[in-house]
């Protein structure tokens, strides 16, 4: 039989202590997540350079075949734009304008989702077979990993935007989500900050792999 945790009281000092811990956990958690992502994309980069230098059967990149450049540039631009909007929104949020962050967030979410859709579309329009070369294989791998990254980033942003809508009324009398000292608002701010950094990371990754797959 399930029972809620009853008769257990936390003192205000304990609540404050654990709230600080939760804020710290959000910071560490988001940075650790970026660490996980860094090693995921580093593994892909290792595969790229390993196969490129090995050039087995002269099949690293026959005839310098390239994935659809316009689509690739658009996906990169959308990722970068989402990151830029997230950062601008977070900048405005820190200055107390929750609405600016929400508008930037919804715009960013839209662009991120568009980038996700374009990435799927691009994978169906490749001018090479996935197994035709080392380049082709790593490109398909990049497509799959980029989809995971974009989906994760969009999910995080969407949950924050949805939370922001629900939080509005709860913190209205306490200065709004940007200024309130209520625990829910403080944790919300920590998560917004983490999400912004995560999108910045995704943008850096997008730049690196765009250069590798389309420019080099």
């Amino acid at each position: 039989m399930a029972t809620p945790v009853a008769n257990f009281k936390e003192t205000p000092e304990e609540i404050a202590y654990e709230l600080r811990a939760a804020e710290g956990a959000a910071w560490i958690g988001s940075r650790s997540l970026i660490g996980v992502g860094a090693f995921i994309y580093a593994s892909l980069a290792f595969a790229y350079f390993y196969l490129r230098s090995a050039n087995q059967a002269q099949l690293w990149r026959p005839h310098h075949v390239t994935a659809p450049t316009e689509l690739g540039a658009a996906i990169f631009a959308l990722s970068a734009a989402t990151a830029a909007l997230s950062m601008y929104g977070a900048y405005r949020f820190r200055r107390g304008s929750v609405v600016d962050w929400e508008v930037a967030g919804w715009m960013g979410l839209l662009l991120g989702a568009l980038g996700f859709a374009l990435q799927i579309y691009e994978l169906t329009r490749l001018p090479f077979y996935p197994g035709s070369s080392g380049y082709a294989s790593t490109f398909v791998g990049w497509g799959a990993l980029n989809l995971v990254g974009l989906l994760g980033g969009c999910y995080w942003l969407e949950t924050l935007l949805a939370r922001s809508l629900r939080l509005r009324r709860a913190v209205a009398e306490d200065g709004g989500a940007a200024n309130s000292t209520l625990p829910a608002a403080r944790l919300f701010r920590a998560s917004v900050e983490g999400c912004t950094v995560f999108w910045g990371f995704l943008a850096i990754v997008a730049v690196c792999f765009w250069a590798l797959f389309y420019l080099v």
């Binding site: 996980v36 992502g37 090693f39 995921i40 580093a42 593994s43 892909l44 595969a47 390993y50 196969l51 090995a54 050039n55 087995q56 059967a57 099949l59 690293w60 077979y129 996935p130 197994g131 035709s132 070369s133 080392g134 380049y135 082709a136 294989s137 790593t138 398909v140 791998g141 799959a144 990993l145």
Partner: peptide
């Protein structure tokens, strides 16, 4: 994460017919 990515490449080789680990097609 490297294990997960390595597994993903293996799965892609066996399903999407990429050639990450196939020497004859530019993989290794």
């Amino acid at each position: 994460p490297t294990l997960v990515v390595a597994g993903l490449f293996g799965v892609l080789d066996r399903t999407a017919l990429t050639a990450f680990y196939v020497n004859e097609h530019g993989g290794s």
